[in-house]
Write a protein that binds this DNA or RNA. Structure first.
Length: 863
RNA sequence: GCGGGCGUGGCGAAACGGUAGACGCAGCGGAUUCAAAAUCCGCCGUAGCAAUACGUGUCGGUUCGAGUCCGACCGCCCGCACCA
């Protein structure tokens, strides 16, 4: 019987229309069912979706559709991370307004996403560039300001003197601006900061509770926060050598145990003591200036040698009034960390060792590794930072490192210098406050006003939003807001005098730090969230996105959750309960004879004698097949989702994305793989059609093995989807399809069992290939939509067999199989095993010394 | 340099410490066809006619039994990078 081919192109839009008309994926906040919030990282509207989006959103959609079938009230929204630089770049290059460009891109991408058949609640769509979104962000800025979570302070930035703009670190290439090519300067600008460091301890501690996050991401965050326990030590400075007004130097150390190995103290070039000392020492001032210049060339830092300059200042060792240490200014000390000053113990710190070896300050080992003789243990080029026993350290000798740290802290805490203790225990963090100021147009305006009389004044809440003016031009360098006289001018809210608006806009990471909360009630006008609604949905049960956001986006969102909690906008601890980071989509690269990259759709692959060769479609010239790389425009190894959907359909693209590789690993996009997926689509359709046709006849129950296979597949697939192991689920589905196919081959397609197995097959593919599943559902004569159908129940009884086949090993090598009753006791199994011919042969007449029976799994005979 | 991860057929990959290679891709053989495409059936780690032997980066260990656990090494990938 001839079955018509499945026509995805015709079918897919039809079902999308049906879902949309019935508002199947519209979620209601008052739905009484248990909630499930699945979210994929929302896209930047760059113009068109790419394969990475297809993979990301397919995974989320499988979870959403599966959870819906399991009876959850699923929230699965979509929006746009719509502020950012590319819109301004487009404005400069193409003379199109950022807003116009952005919304045109959104329209294109929305259409593309809809063609994928994603079960999204489009009624909750948001765009961060819309005043109805960012006005709440401005309100929260004011909330945070009141709560003391916002700071205004100076910070070093990369300044491009030609474009007159601040550059992100990754926009500085070899010390030059990526666009202008101008030498980038380090400038001190007054900037707005969110005080994320206020939450450093909690952000660190609560990582332990995120057990549904990848360990890797937690580790990256932990390293980024960089908690360290140490000691703040105050060194007395010799007045004879020290500039007036200075008498103490505070240093931070995590190795107070090595205090007797100290050879010098060092401060950062921009440390106040360095500046004070430089005032009367021109050479020192010149050295400091040199350090500052070296700082600008980012790349140079890697290779920079440890340089220092003796200030002439002498400090007194806290345990010995007669022991003086020189104070250096050194280029490797960071003002931003700790106190910007250290004591150097060269024997046990590589940087300090490099430093003293250059300046001839010597070293004294104070920790002796186990098994080494303290009398002869010496350090030359390599510092020792391992465990050991204290030596050369007076009262610390013989102690462990931990004991010595404790002893030093205990003694110095008890002593005082002036009215303060000589030392204090201090927990330090590497994490810095989050600078949110951007000297850019296309971002959320920071709602403050600068008044000559009153200083910085917040914009009154009733005046929000501060909207971006639309009549701006990008024909000059710099921020258009700075040039917009009319927009800038505003009366001071306090004294009514003429004042000036803040022209900095917010980092776009701010926009994406709370969108997941906004989705819970996206139309709410008078507040960012309804705390009750937000708390009913949050945390996000499953968040899915790229590993590239492992640190910043996720950390900022965690900060925002805490800050919003302080402003009574949410009541939760952590925003994302489950996190999954998916791998990239990669593809072969191709180059023609001239070395130009060639796009995959311009390449024809031929296989000859087992080797693959590529040719240009138009010219038929040979093309070199290169390495497999992340899809990128520069290497032209991209595949356009639109093309794939047009030629194979969305279901094929979705299926391939799920089938080949584990989801956290990169997936290689291949033409053969897509065709394989497409063949499977056709095969399912054929199986279903044949079963549908045959099924009209007999009411025969049918064979048990197929029932078992169907329910085994069902049980396995649901477990796999719960664990996001889509590739395994796909394999199980193939197995079931194979089993049904064999049944049809045997002419038993008319049985009730075949129909049941086929119905289960359709339900298993429904989260992955929803359009095909609907078409099959209807062909099988099922009522309603498969997208609305409840997930089938596993019949547990079918998962256990009456007779089981156990593999038999002799001395660890497999020699035979025995089939026994499932509930056979060990004696019976042993008897069956030892009488087996192949087992006897393998035992070569030796007696069985021991028989290990692992219930339901295996038997091992030790002979 | 520090931290983390990963090494399994021609390829993507499976495998609660228990039959290594499920499932897919590619390939090979056959059926169908005037022929092809599509489809269906079979084979498909290496060596061997076979019985069998050997096989999860290398070397060692634990165990009745190791791809899986432990130690050392080799290779690749990622993150951080003067954080005291």
């Amino acid at each position: 019987m001839a079955v018509e081919r499945y026509n995805a192109k015709e079918t897919e839009p039809r079902w999308q229309e049906v879902w949309s008309e019935r508002e199947l994926f519209r979620t209601h906040n008052d739905d009484p069912r248990p909630k499930y919030y699945v979210l994929e990282m929302f896209p930047y509207p760059s113009g068109r979706i790419h394969m990475g989006h297809v993979r990301n959103y397919t995974m989320g959609d499988v979870v959403a559709r599966y959870k819906r079938a399991r009876g959850f009230n699923v929230l699965h929204p979509m929006g746009w991370d719509a502020f950012g630089m590319p819109a301004e770049n487009a404005a400069m290059q193409n003379k199109v307004h950022p807003k116009e460009w952005t919304y045109a891109n959104i329209a294109t991408m929305r259409k593309q996403l809809k063609s994928m058949g994603l079960s999204l609640d489009w009624s909750r769509e948001i765009a961060t560039c819309d005043p109805s979104y960012y006005k709440h962000q401005q309100r929260m800025f004011l909330d945070f300001l009141e709560a003391g979570l916002v700071a205004r302070k100076t910070a070093k930035v990369n300044w491009d003197p030609v474009d007159q703009t601040v550059l992100a670190n990754e926009q500085v290439i070899d010390g030059r601006g990526w666009r202008s090519g101008a030498l980038v300067e380090q400038r001190e600008l007054t900037q707005w900061f969110f005080k994320i460091t206020d939450f450093a301890a909690d952000l660190d501690a609560r990582l332990d509770t995120l057990d549904r996050w990848p360990e890797k991401v937690r580790l990256m965050q932990r390293n980024w926060i960089g908690r360290s326990e140490g000691l703040l030590v105050r060194f007395a400075l010799d007045p004879a050598t020290t500039p007036a007004g200075e008498d103490t130097l505070e240093i931070y150390t995590t190795r107070p145990d090595t205090l007797f190995g100290a050879k010098f103290l060092a401060v950062a070039p921009d440390h106040p003591l360095a500046k004070a000392a430089a005032a009367k020492a021109p050479e020192l001032a010149a050295f400091i200036e040199e350090c500052r210049r070296m700082g600008t060339a980012q790349e140079a830092i890697d290779k920079a040698e440890k340089l220092g300059f003796d200030t002439g200042i002498r400090a007194t060792h806290p345990f010995d009034p007669d022991w003086q240490l020189p104070v250096y200014v050194a280029n490797f000390i960071l003002m931003e960390y700790g106190t910007g000053a250290i004591f150097g113990c060269p024997a046990h710190d590589q940087r300090d060792l490099d430093f003293v070896n250059r300046y001839g300050l010597g070293n004294t080992p104070v920790v002796c590794p186990p098994g080494q003789d303290p009398a002869t243990f010496a350090i030359t080029d390599e510092a020792y930072d391992g465990e050991g026993t204290l030596i050369n350290s007076r009262f610390l000798d013989g102690m462990t490192i931990a004991a010595a740290k404790e002893e030093v802290a205990r003694r110095l805490e008890a002593e005082t210098r002036g009215n303060r203790p000589v030392a204090e225990r201090k927990v330090n963090y590497r994490l810095r406050d989050w600078g949110i100021s951007r000297q850019r147009y296309w971002g959320c305006p920071i709602p403050v006003i600068h008044c000559a009389n009153c200083g910085v004044v917040p914009v009154p809440r009733e005046d929000l939003p501060v909207t971006l003016p639309e009549d701006v031009s990008f024909d000059q360098p710099g921020n258009p807001l700075d040039r917009h006289a009319e927009w800038l001018k505003v009366p001071c809210p306090t004294c009514r005098a003429e004042a000036r608006r803040e022209t900095d806009t917010m980092d776009t990471f701010v926009d994406s730090s709370w969108y997941f909360a906004r989705f819970t009630d996206p139309k709410l006008d008078d507040a960012p969230t309804d705390p009750e609604v937000a708390d009913s949905w949050l945390p996000v049960d499953q968040y899915i996105g790229g590993i590239e956001h492992a640190i910043l986006h996720l950390l900022y969102s965690r900060f925002f959750t805490r800050a919003m909690r302080r402003a009574d906008l949410v009541g939760l601890d952590e925003p994302f309960d489950g996190l999954f980071t998916q791998g990239m989509v990669v593809h072969e690269t191709y180059r023609d004879r001239a070395g130009n990259w060639v796009q995959p759709n311009e390449v024809r692959i031929e296989t000859e004698a087992g080797s693959r060769r590529a040719f240009h479609v138009k010219t038929s010239e040979p093309v070199e097949i290169g390495s497999i790389e992340k899809m990128s425009k520069s290497k032209k190894n991209t595949v356009d989702p639109d093309d794939i959907i047009a030629s194979y359909g969305a279901d094929t693209a979705r299926w391939f994305m799920l089938s080949d590789s584990p989801p956290e690993r990169d997936v290689i996009w291949t033409e053969e793989g897509v065709q394989g997926a497409w063949r499977f689509v056709q095969r399912v359709w054929r199986l279903v059609s044949e079963v549908a046709e045959a099924g009209k006849g007999s009411g025969d129950v049918g064979p048990l093995p197929l029932r078992r296979a169907a329910h085994r597949a069902l049980a396995a697939v649901q477990d796999d989807i719960e664990d996001l192991r889509f590739n395994r689920a796909v394999a199980r589905i193939y197995e079931l399809a194979n089993a049904i196919g064999a049944e049809l081959q045997a002419g038993k397609g008319a049985s009730a069992t075949a129909r049941e197995a086929t119905r289960i097959l359709v339900q298993l593919i429904a989260p992955m290939m929803p359009h095909l599943a609907e078409e099959c559902w209807r062909a099988l004569g099922q009522k309603g939509l498969v997208a609305e159908a409840a997930w089938p129940e596993v019949e547990r009884d079918l998962l256990v067999e009456d007779m089981i086949t156990l593999p038999v090993q002799v001395n660890g090598k497999k020699r035979a199989d025995v089939t026994v009753a499932r509930d056979a006791d060990n004696e019976a199994i042993e008897a069956a095993v030892l009488s087996h011919e192949a087992v006897k042969r393998a035992m070569e007449g030796r007696p069985a010394r021991k028989v290990i029976v692992v219930p339901q799994r295996i038997v091992n005979v030790v002979a």
